Simulated assay, not measured.
Amino acid sequence: MLAQNMEQLEAVGLNLFFAAIFFFIGMAIHDVLKQGKVPKYGRYIVWLVLFLGCTGFIAKGMIQFFWESSGIG
């Protein structure tokens, strides 16, 4: 296997791993909020923070991809 293919496979695997981690974090937060009987306003704040974290991670990946494809990074 070529080194370039191996790097691409590692990058895809790492992104899938992070997606799985975000999913499991979301499931754990859902369970804690459900068992703790948190008010609706608090739930919205928690989910907003989690969503912003995921969005930042996705934006970072897209910026990195575009920079590397244009030769900047």
Results as ranks from 00 to 15, higher is better:
residue 10 E to C: 01
residue 63 I to P: 09
residue 72 I to M: 14
residue 51 F to H: 09
residue 32 V to F: 13
residue 64 Q to A: 15
residue 20 A to Y: 00
residue 17 F to D: 11
residue 31 D to N: 06
residue 65 F to C: 04
residue 45 I to R: 06
residue 47 W to F: 08
residue 34 K to H: 07
residue 14 L to F: 02
residue 49 V to E: 03
residue 31 D to I: 02
residue 23 F to R: 12
residue 64 Q to L: 06
residue 26 G to C: 10
residue 13 G to Q: 08
residue 66 F to H: 01
residue 41 Y to P: 06
residue 30 H to A: 14
residue 46 V to K: 10
residue 51 F to M: 11
residue 21 I to M: 01
residue 59 A to P: 11
residue 64 Q to H: 13
residue 73 G to R: 07
residue 18 F to K: 12
residue 19 A to Q: 13
residue 8 Q to T: 14
residue 54 C to G: 08
residue 65 F to H: 04
residue 68 E to I: 06
residue 28 A to W: 02
residue 50 L to N: 14
residue 64 Q to P: 00
residue 48 L to Y: 04
residue 5 N to D: 01
residue 20 A to E: 05
residue 66 F to S: 05
residue 23 F to C: 14
residue 29 I to G: 15
residue 53 G to H: 07
residue 9 L to N: 07
residue 20 A to K: 07
residue 33 L to F: 05
residue 41 Y to A: 15
residue 4 Q to N: 09
residue 72 I to G: 11
residue 21 I to V: 13
residue 24 F to A: 07
residue 54 C to Y: 04
residue 73 G to L: 05
residue 60 K to I: 00
residue 27 M to Y: 07
residue 55 T to Y: 03
residue 50 L to S: 15
residue 19 A to P: 05
residue 37 K to L: 01
residue 2 L to D: 12
residue 54 C to M: 09
residue 35 Q to M: 06
residue 27 M to S: 11
residue 68 E to D: 11
residue 16 L to G: 13
residue 28 A to G: 06
residue 2 L to T: 06
residue 40 K to V: 09
residue 17 F to W: 12
residue 15 N to T: 15
residue 26 G to V: 04
residue 51 F to P: 08
residue 25 I to E: 15
residue 70 S to D: 04
residue 3 A to N: 01
residue 45 I to M: 10
residue 49 V to D: 03
residue 53 G to M: 09
residue 37 K to A: 01
residue 33 L to S: 09
residue 70 S to I: 00
residue 68 E to G: 05
residue 71 G to S: 03
residue 43 R to H: 13
residue 60 K to S: 14
residue 26 G to L: 01
residue 2 L to H: 08
residue 24 F to P: 01
residue 44 Y to L: 05
residue 40 K to G: 13
residue 51 F to Y: 03
residue 37 K to G: 06
residue 8 Q to K: 10
residue 3 A to L: 06
residue 39 P to L: 09
residue 52 L to R: 07
residue 5 N to G: 02
residue 22 F to P: 00
residue 51 F to V: 04
residue 21 I to A: 07
residue 51 F to A: 14
residue 61 G to F: 07
residue 20 A to R: 07
residue 13 G to N: 12
residue 8 Q to Y: 00
residue 8 Q to R: 12
residue 36 G to F: 03
residue 4 Q to L: 00
residue 15 N to P: 00
residue 33 L to M: 13
residue 59 A to M: 03
residue 29 I to V: 14
residue 53 G to E: 09
residue 45 I to N: 07
residue 23 F to V: 15
residue 36 G to D: 07
residue 34 K to G: 08
residue 19 A to N: 08
residue 31 D to A: 11
residue 7 E to V: 05
residue 21 I to S: 01
residue 50 L to C: 15
residue 14 L to K: 11
residue 1 M to R: 12
residue 6 M to T: 06
residue 73 G to K: 08
residue 16 L to H: 11
residue 18 F to Y: 15
residue 55 T to N: 12
residue 27 M to E: 11
residue 40 K to A: 15
residue 73 G to T: 06
residue 47 W to S: 13
